[in-house]
Design a protein around this nucleic acid. Structure first.
Lengths: 178, 178
DNA sequence: CCACCCATGTAACTAGTTACATGATTTC
DNA sequence: GAAATCATGTAACTAGTTACATGGGTGG
């Protein structure tokens, strides 16, 4: 279970409300770890119960707004978790299943969907490239920025690979017979 | 929900028992779509209820062994589903969270885990390469084989990319400061 | 006769998604 | 004063995982 640790990291970076975290999980962090606001609120409540974070009303904030900060126990937990091993992500793309269905049943007209995917991958790559030139184009990056850049580079590499692969697939799908 | 369609495809390729499907989902198909035997049995029961597949006792098989075949309604469903759009797979690797935690808290000694990952990626690539030379080294592949090869190539590309990325990450982690 | 593989399932749990619900504040 | 955004949550559901359970057949 990694969501609590994703939240801890995000809160170490900057104490925030559930709402703010939800927005961050739709943007920067969301590029490699997605979560909805419902999940986030539920998890924050659990984490508070465990003494990993504490919340307080925000001066000058809206009614009901609560800001969460990481407690020492939360930092300890994050450090402990970061040192544990984890399994590499699984490849799990429905498009592969569709390709295999096409192979089993005969041509099903998948080219259109591959075109759509190609577009999506290009858009995502463009978004990543924009972040790259905005945040990581300085000649000497501090360690912290280098690590965050590494995460982005994993995304860039993935999208670039998928673009090439999708083009290969389109050529095969359109080549007709054998 | 894609598991039923993965099972339909697998059963179109070859009528099988739940046990045989479970083994296939640990090998070839499992490389891009994993499922446990519990999930498979549950799903087969549902699919039979919907009239997509039918089961019968196997002559000369063990007691209780049932073989599933795809019914016309199941083929129709598979064809219908294959033509629908789907979202690209999500990047969701715990290692990225750990990198970000390291960036937020300071060096946590992740290099060891990256070494381990590097090994795993190399092993997986080797396994893929073995399948490649066993099944797809003929000069002219029929359409069906070309499509199945495409799926494998997506896996090969992913592992190769990750190997390069992990080496980059190790260099950064070991470079010490900025 | 013991261990391993074949072959089936149930039950309980965890993580994630979708739908619903409410109310305050800011902006046009 | 209406619409958009801020800000919080509950409830029901789906998919996937882990633990448990049973029994027949085969090979050493």
């Amino acid at each position: 279970m990694s969501l609590p640790h994703a939240l801890l990291t995000s809160l170490v970076e900057k104490p925030s409300s559930g709402y703010e975290l939800a927005r961050r999980f739709d943007k920067s962090i969301g590029y490699f770890w997605h979560a909805t606001h419902q999940q986030i609120y539920r998890e924050l409540a659990r984490m508070e119960g465990q003494g990993w974070v504490a919340s307080s009303a925000v001066d000058g904030g809206r009614a009901g707004k609560r800001e969460f900060v990481v407690l020492p126990a939360g930092r300890d937990e994050l450090r402990r978790w970061a040192a544990t091993a984890s399994e590499p992500m699984e490849l799990r793309d429905e498009l592969m299943l569709r390709l295999r269905a096409d192979a089993a049943l005969g041509p099903l007209g998948l080219a259109e969907e591959f075109e759509r995917r190609l577009d999506l991958h290009r858009q995502k790559l463009q978004a990543y490239r924009a972040i790259e030139s905005r945040d990581f184009s300085a000649p000497h990056l501090p360690r912290e920025a280098q690590l965050r850049y590494l995460i982005l580079k994993a995304g860039i590499q993935f999208e670039e690979g998928r673009i090439l692969w999708t083009q290969d697939a389109l050529a095969t799908l359109r080549a007709g017979g054998d």
